[in-house]
């Protein structure tokens, strides 16, 4: 028994353990939490966060960051909504237009980062401002309403009782997992996150890998824009202001190292579930909203502290090995 606990802690599952504990707590303390209705509602509301976190994950693994994503998804949602209202209400075309537009905006980030070798934070801060400015100019900040009905009814679909948005999250998760594990590009993402110079020496092309990272994120933002609009049934150009921070917290809370090098889809699922169930569960437990923030903050600190302590221990072990080697 003791050994198993240690194994669980050592295998980067600390945060998952906290999520499981919260899950059990909420299930025992309230009747409404562990019901099919509540679970599918929660997974529906957090599907967009999930899809975007799947795009942020490879970027963070590679040691980069993208803070322009809130503007990109808003831009995609606006373009998609205007396209559906004025050109064609075909749903498939809407997905294609939105995803291509997202990929295009992502490509701009990717080009600036890989060709000009500017820091990702600086580039995406700049593009955030530009894209946001253009969106506010085009929409005047007003919501786009009266989205065609077929998107709304698509958003209400529940194959096998599972909300369609959750299925998209699932598919995007599987796709990202496949790309990271089984493609040269995916392995390259880990390699440049670990050490870019060594990665280049063994034959990876960091510029190309980075370019595709941001294109992929843009592409997912395009998909997420349609998924989001299918729930909200209108487009608010300001809906994703500051959303990049929520995405980054989801990824990091799942246990991904913000400095890059490692992380997996499993971490994203843990992080998204963490954010999804805590607020839901605390409201269901009738906890006052003033306490909610304090409790969520405390749980986050515990999760991160546990993670950091674990890493410090690992590092300490490594140092010993180094010294012994030198002496030998």
């Amino acid at each position: 028994m003791k050994i198993q606990w240690k194994k669980i802690f050592n295998q980067k599952y600390t945060n998952a353990l906290i999520v499981v504990m919260l899950f059990l707590l909420f299930s025992i303390a309230t009747d409404a939490f562990f019901t099919f209705e509540n679970m599918s509602d929660v997974l529906k509301s957090y599907a967009v966060l999930g899809i975007l976190s799947c795009g942020m994950l490879p970027i963070i693994i590679s040691g980069g960051i993208d803070v322009s994503i809130g503007a990109i998804i808003s831009a995609c949602a606006c373009v998609m909504a205007l396209f559906m209202k004025n050109v064609s209400s075909n749903l498939l075309l809407a997905f294609v237009v939105s995803a291509l537009f997202g990929a295009l905006l992502g490509a701009i980030n990717g080009l600036l980062i890989s060709l000009l070798k500017i820091q990702p934070l600086v580039v995406t801060l700049g593009t955030y401002s530009i894209i946001n400015g253009c969106m506010i100019y085009l929409t005047n900040g007003s919501w786009i309403t009266e989205i065609p009905d077929n998107l709304i009814s698509f958003g209400r679909m529940r194959p096998l009782g599972i909300p369609i948005q959750t299925i998209f999250f699932l598919l995007v998760g599987l796709l990202t997992m496949f790309l990271l594990r089984h493609t040269l590009w995916g392995r390259g993402v880990y390699a440049i996150g670990g050490d870019e110079v060594s990665a280049e020496r063994i034959g990876y092309k960091p510029g190309w890998i980075k370019f595709l990272l941001y294109v992929y994120f843009g592409f997912l933002a395009g998909i997420a824009a349609v998924v989001h609009t299918s729930i909200m049934s209108q487009v608010d150009p300001n809906a994703f202001k500051g959303y990049e921070m929520t995405i980054i917290s989801a990824v990091v809370l799942g246990g991904v190292n913000i400095a890059g090098g490692f992380g997996s889809i499993f971490n994203v699922v843990v992080g998204v579930l963490f954010l999804a169930i805590t607020y839901n569960g605390l409201i269901l437990m009738k906890v006052s909203s003033y306490w909610q923030n304090i409790i969520v903050g405390a749980i986050m600190l515990i999760a991160i502290a546990a993670d950091t302590i674990k890493k410090k221990r690992e590092e300490a072990e490594k140092t010993v090995v180094d010294v012994e080697y030198k002496e030998g």
């Binding site: 509602d41 929660v42 509301s45 957090y46 967009v48 989001h228 729930i231 909200m232 608010d236 809906a239 607020y279 839901n280 409201i283």
Partner: peptide
């Protein structure tokens, strides 16, 4: 945010 109000 609208989506937060919706979930809450």
């Amino acid at each position: 945010q609208q989506q937060e109000a919706y979930s809450r």
